[in-house]
Design a protein around this nucleic acid. Sequence first.
RNA 1: UCCUCAGUAGCUCAGCUGGUUAGAGCAUCUGACUGUUAAUCAGAGGGUCGUUGGUUCGAGCCCAACCUGAGGAGCCA
Length: 482
Amino acid sequence: MAQQRTKIKELLSNGTEGKTYTIKGWVRTKRENKNVAFIALNDGSTIKNIQVVADPAKTSEEVLRKITTGAALAIEGTLVASQGQGQSVELQAHSIQVLGEADPEKYPLQPKKHSLEFLREIAHLRMRTNTFGAVFRMRHAMAYAVHKFFHEKGFVNLHTPIITGSDAEGAGEMFRVTTLDLDKLPRTEEGKVNFKEDFFEKETNLTVSGQLEGELGALALGEIYTFGPTFRAENSNTSRHLAEFWMIEPEMAFVELEGNMDLAEEMLKYLIRYALDNCTDDLEFLDARAAEEEKNKPQVERNELGLIERLRFILDNDFERLSYTEAIEILKNSKPNKKKKFNYLIEEWGADLQSEHERYLVEKHFKKPVILFDYPAAIKAFYMRRNEDNKTVRAMDILFPGIGEIVGGSQREERYEELKERAAAIDIHEEDLWWYLETRKFGTAPHSGFGLGFERLMLFVTGMTNIRDVIPFPRFPGNAEF
RNA sequence: UCCUCAGUAGCUCAGCUGGUUAGAGCAUCUGACUGUUAAUCAGAGGGUCGUUGGUUCGAGCCCAACCUGAGGAGCCA
């Protein structure tokens, strides 16, 4: 078996009939009788299996017995036209080597449908299934497409820190980073923990956003983006939140809110087009899978469009852009509001929108992605650019059907005095954020950016419905297994 | 964190009004079958009914607490 292995994807698309190949992979199923054995082998390079045909007369009984679902095999054989129906070519095995057995009594993945909940509990093995193989191949394709998109547009990939010393953004609970001995914490004279003795000689946490550092980059390099892990210690138990997730945060100098919205829409469409163009096999599988799931849902909850149709729909339609104020008007006059069907009724300007309101706008009223902008300052972050009306800020959220908020961004407050004032109003001390404020002192300029939740994009693109199923090893309250 | 629902074989589930020895499909194993497609047919093995406590002559079923999971809400990406 000196020959180099050929990946199954390559073999199926470019293999030459009559030639000898070596393939390596894992058994999905084996079917056999006295005269012939069929092995469906998968190596992860594609969702497709190759059918290996083995002659029981030429294969030892011991080897044949060890070929069970999950076993790793190395096979040398000749690629031939298939005599059966389901595939055009198959590999006629000359020799089969069992690299690793998988005890069929104990191996949890058997050739049958498993629930996603069960597979989540065996995340170390779930990537061997069709569904998760497809999802994680697509996750790679999307990550690659993100870098490709920004590279082509001349953005610089800026690596912002994962450990941060500023608790300033106030974007929720953070994970503490420390090397202090928790059993013997050093104390100050007032009895508080003395962080002067900690590794960084100050309190440090895992980042909740690379935005503030990203802005520093944009105000030097022009256009930057970050793409890295982000951490929130919120006690969130939903199908849309993770404690550790990946976020893409572009930041552009000399760009105002409209350009920001343009970039976000262009990017989302680019990524979705990339999926349609490059992940055909996996998408077709996931499309069929989602259609199967739909059948089990009551009529009212079913999607009007299938997965691939939904992706095409995004490409063919402009996102609906409307101000918060316009959205409130629509919601105020909507049927569910008038008939008091909303749990939270919309009565006046200034109310924060609930999930049910966002869903109504996206799924019922406009039936396409919606970009909401110019929100009340009171419900948005301190760093967002204040409008001339003095009550709204240049914020924008992109809402997607079935997912909700996929992008959140804004034009940033570039005026020193205004920014300082707004930071102080929510008790952020100047000495903690001096470096951020200084960019407004020296050569400040209008600039904008947003954050795109990578896993939320993955939900949309794969048709999966739980965010824990689009990241290989999900982190959420009470769970850091694997 | 809150609300709702669920936890029975490896997996997905049924289990009547509380009543004798807890069932099915798939998976696994054995046998049969000359090319199968999650093969088919026949048979077999497989259970601390989430945990703890309670009610009762008797609990898979009723009650309580806890644990785990799902859906929804909040926080947000």
